[in-house]
Amino acid sequence: MNILHMSDIHFCQSYAQFETGYKGMISKMTNPLEHLAISLAHVKDRVSLDLVIVSGDLTEDGTVEDYRYLKDWLTKELGEIPLVVTLGNHDIKANFRVGWLDEEGSDAPYNELSSFADFHVLSVDSSVYGMADGQLTQPQFNWLETQLETLKDKPIILVTHHHLLEHQSSTPCLPESVQLLKLIERYPVVALLNGHTHHAYTGDLLGIQYYTAGGMSFVGEDEGQGLVRFEERYGYNLYTLNRGEIKQQTTENFVTGTIIAYVNMQEEC
């Protein structure tokens, strides 16, 4: 079974036009649907896809219509391939629920369970709109523990938006990472998938395979003293599973060499 893992699309049909700052950078970047199209074509030329996972920041502060448009675009590109998503700190839950799920708007966390013949995928919402580092509340932990107890019959892949390792990025990890890892070590979690940093990362936590997918929109490189160099670079992870466990993992990065902008992020706060 082949799983494509993408993250941090930051899509909008129309970006607000700014000259400077983070929003100025966003307005100058290439439409991420172009990156998505290239990446999907690249994967489809190599393997037959069985599942696609997107680990958050589907949009850049998206409207209802942005979510509707992105889902329609992905559905057209993927056809019958199942799609699992979680939300990131740039996603607006109420707009997502209306535009993506076609249900009443709500700020309640969006958690998703998808079960397959040999494994389960648990997508856990660690996002809070406008809170970059994210949060897992106690009700979220309660939900997750209930699911883990129920799903002990098969290997489990756990998906969050936020990364869990403090040392992997200058961007802070999920504040409740230690509590989360303490919970899942009792259960058959075989892989942890996330995004948020826009940088691909491969590691091991408690004997669990750990993968962060690169962003599908842009990459920020820390220049020091708050200055970030934003580049046009994007990519994805591809996993091959056998009996519910990842047996092969490939990271692909597309480097255009384009610098979008330099932004002093301290001035953004």
Results as ranks from 00 to 15, higher is better:
Asn194His: 15
Pro175Arg: 10
Leu206Tyr: 07
Tyr201Ser: 13
Thr212Gly: 09
His196Trp: 08
Tyr211Leu: 12
Gln179Arg: 15
Thr171Ile: 15
Pro172Ser: 03
Pro172Glu: 04
Leu180Val: 01
Asp204His: 10
Leu180Asn: 00
Gly203Asp: 08
Thr171Cys: 03
Ile184Gln: 09
Leu165Glu: 14
Leu174Glu: 00
Ala191Asp: 11
His162Tyr: 03
Leu181Ala: 01
Gly203Ala: 10
Leu165Gly: 06
Ser217Lys: 05
Thr212Phe: 02
Tyr201Cys: 09
Arg186Gly: 03
Pro172Trp: 01
Leu192His: 10
Thr171Pro: 01
Leu192Gln: 04
Leu165Gln: 15
Cys173Arg: 06
Glu176Met: 03
Ser177Asp: 11
His162Gln: 11
Leu205Phe: 07
Val190Asp: 07
Leu205Gly: 03
Thr212His: 04
Ala200Ile: 08
His167Tyr: 08
Thr202Ile: 09
Tyr187Met: 08
Gly214Asn: 12
Tyr210Ile: 07
Gln168Ala: 11
Arg186Phe: 07
Leu193Ser: 10
Tyr210Cys: 13
His199Phe: 08
Arg186Lys: 13
Val189Gly: 02
Ser217Cys: 14
Pro188Thr: 11
Tyr201Pro: 04
Leu164Thr: 02
Arg186His: 13
Gln209Asn: 09
Tyr210Asp: 12
Met216Phe: 05
His196Glu: 10
Thr171Lys: 15
Leu206Cys: 04
Ser170Ile: 08
Gln209Ile: 05
Leu180Met: 05
Leu205Thr: 15
Gly195Tyr: 04
Cys173Thr: 12
Asp204Pro: 07
His196Leu: 03
Leu206Ser: 14
Asp204Leu: 14
Ala213Phe: 00
His196Met: 12
Thr202Gln: 13
Val178His: 09
Leu180Ser: 00
Thr197Ile: 12
Tyr201Met: 11
Thr197Asn: 09
Ser170Tyr: 13
His199Met: 07
Pro175Leu: 06
Ile208Cys: 06
Pro175Glu: 09
Leu205Gln: 15
Gly207Cys: 13
Ala213Glu: 00
Thr171Asn: 12
Asp204Tyr: 06
Ala213Pro: 00
His167Gly: 06
Leu206Ala: 09
Gly207Tyr: 07
Gly215Met: 04
Thr202Val: 14
Gln179Lys: 15
Arg186Glu: 07
Ser177Phe: 02
Leu180Lys: 00
Tyr210Met: 08
Leu180Asp: 00
Leu181Thr: 00
Leu180Ala: 01
Gln209Cys: 03
Thr171Ala: 05
Val189Cys: 11
His167Ser: 10
Pro188Tyr: 06
His198Met: 06
Leu164Asn: 02
Leu206His: 14
Ser170Pro: 14
Glu166Lys: 15
Ala191Lys: 10
Pro175Phe: 04
Val189Pro: 01
Leu180Phe: 01
Asp204Glu: 12
Thr171Tyr: 10
Val189Arg: 01
